[in-house]
Amino acid sequence: MIVEINNLVKRYGDNLAVDNVNLAIKEGEIFGLLGPNGAGKTTIINLLTGLTRFGSGEVKIFSHKINGHNGKIKKHIGIVPQDIAIYEDLTAAENVTMFGKLYGLSGNELRERVGQALAFTGLDERAKEFPKKFSGGMKRRLNIACAIVHQPRLIIMDEPTVGIDPQSRKHILNSVLELHEQGSTVIYTSHYMEEVEQLCSQIAIMDQGRIIAKGTREELKELVSSEEKIDITLTGANYTLVEKITKIPEVKECSLGEDKLTILTAKNSAIIGRVIDIITATGADVLSMEVEKPTLESVFLTLTGKTLRD
């Protein structure tokens, strides 16, 4: 395990910000921490990076317990903070160089890594420009470049796509996948479930300081769903069709609208082939078909009774 968190507790006065959290993150994973604002994601990141002292529990990174300064551990971690943390009065290259030096790089190695980090984030042609001239998305990318200049084993990204344009967002998401392919372990926090769903192999869902569920995407969806809904748009349908489909044992419910057939079945029942055969046999034509499966949003809704953006 690259990160182990055991029984972690953090209080701010009467507020229990992190409530007995246990997590284990394997090397090479993209681990998603999903939860609404105020769920405790950033507090966990701050505890991992030593910015905040924890009340009780244990945190191990690279099998070393976190306590005190942890300089040797920090050398192999890159942090992309939620708020953009760069100097507007240093050029893009100077920002990345400064962080490279703080991570212990020097000489040719430093120059090479700075070039690579800027190229990776698509800022190599703007290296000598000041970030105050950059768009929000470019600043976010520079924020990432500063975190990866030393090619860390563990990259922690705290909501890196907040408030940016779709193009920069796409660039950042692709960057995360690329970093993962290069062998880095990534901890990715977000309240955008589609990002976590797209990127992360392991996901922990947080709410009110607690981990309320964790596992792979599929495992999480398993938690909440025993049904699938199939929507078929068609022409030439009649009520005989509904009768025949309802007779399929796995079908729980079937209804026909103006030009839409809705079927509710047991999960993973694999009835689509049989349904298509029936439709064809009755002389109707299928225009489109959609199988609606549970999302992480619906998982969160089921587990907490509220949406991620509440």
Binding site: T49, G50, L51, G71, K72, K74, K75, I77, I79, P81, D83, I84, A85, I86, Y87, F99, L102, Y103, G104, C146
Partner: peptide, 11 residues
């Protein structure tokens, strides 16, 4: 912000 980030480096 930047100060907090610097604190996450080995300094």
């Amino acid at each position: 912000n930047v100060g907090q980030r610097i604190k996450t480096t080995p300094i």
